[in-house]
C-alpha cells in the first residue's frame, strides 16, 4: 500500500485559515489501512482543527467526507453536488488523490493534509515498512524475494557493503541489512549461486529516470 503520515497541525492551520468553509476529504484505500487518512482520521482532524482554530479566534465550517478512492475520477465525481459549499479542499489522501482533486476542480484550492511516505507492507499492528520503490523492472526473482533497491540504504545490487554488522545496516540498528536477509534466504532455498552473477548497472528509465511514467492498456483505455 501507499503509506502516509499526517502533517503537523500548525502547517494545516496555515493552509485553511484564509477560508470560511472547507471540505476535509478522506480516502478509504491505503491511507485508511495505515491509519493516516480514513474516515476516523478525518473525524479526529476535523475536531482538532476546529478546536485549534477556535483558540485562535477563528471559526471555519469543516465539512467531512470520505471517498472510496480519491485517485479515481469515478469516485471524485461524487463530490460535484457538494463541492460548491466549500471554498477549499483539505485532502487526507496520498499525493495521487490530492492531484486528482486539483485536476478535477480547477477553481478550488486543494491542500495536502498528509505527507505521503512510501510503498510498504505492514510488519505488525501499527508498523509499516518500505518494501518497493517501483523501479519498473523487478529483481525479486534473483534476490530471493527481498528487494535491495528499496531496502538497502545504498541501493547496492551486488551484495552487502562493508558496514553490515550482525545482520544490521550501518545506517541504523533498527534496519536489517537487506543483503544479510537475501543471503540467508538464498541459502535456505539452496540458491547461493544466484549471488555469484553480477547484476549489471540498472536501466533507470523504467524507474522514472526518463520522466513521469504512464501505463496504457490498449484493451481498456477509452
Amino acid at each position: 500500500m501507499i503509506t502516509a503520515e499526517r502533517k503537523p497541525l500548525e502547517e494545516l492551520i496555515d493552509y485553511v485559515k484564509p477560508f470560511k468553509r472547507i471540505l476535509l476529504l478522506g480516502c478509504n484505500e491505503c491511507v485508511t489501512v495505515c491509519a493516516a487518512g480514513g474516515r476516523k482520521e478525518v473525524g479526529l482532524l476535523a475536531s482538532g482543527l476546529q478546536m485549534a482554530l477556535l483558540k485562535s479566534g477563528s471559526n471555519i465550517e469543516i465539512k467531512q467526507h470520505t471517498l472510496e478512492r480519491q485517485c479515481d475520477p469515478e469516485y471524485v465525481e461524487e463530490l460535484v453536488p457538494m463541492i460548491d459549499g466549500s471554498e477549499a479542499i483539505l485532502s487526507m489522501a496520498c499525493g495521487c488523490g490530492v492531484q486528482q482533486l486539483a485536476t478535477r476542480f480547477k477553481d478550488k484550492p486543494v491542500f495536502p493534509a498528509l505527507n505521503t511516505q512510501f510503498m510498504g507492507a505492514s510488519e505488525r499492528q501499527g508498523v509499516w515498512a518500505e518494501r518497493c520503490q517501483g523501479c519498473g523492472d523487478c529483481v525479486l526473482g534473483i534476490t530471493g524475494g527481498i528487494c535491495p533497491i528499496a531496502r538497502c540504504a545504498k541501493q547496492l545490487m551486488n551484495g552487502p557493503c562493508g558496514g553490515s554488522t550482525g545482520g544490521k545496516c550501518e545506517v541504523s540498528e533498527d534496519v536489517d541489512c537487506v543483503w544479510q536477509l537475501i543471503w540467508d534466504r538464498l541459502k535456505s532455498l539452496g540458491q547461493e549461486d544466484r549471488y555469484v552473477d553480477i547484476m549489471p548497472a540498472k536501466d533507470w528509465r523504467s524507474g522514472g529516470g526518463s520522466g513521469p511514467r504512464k501505463i496504457i492498456r490498449e484493451d481498456l483505455a477509452e
Partner: peptide
Amino acid sequence: VDALHIIKAFE
C-alpha cells in the same frame, strides 16, 4: 475508548 471519543469530549 477511541481517540475520537476523547477528542470529541474536549471539543
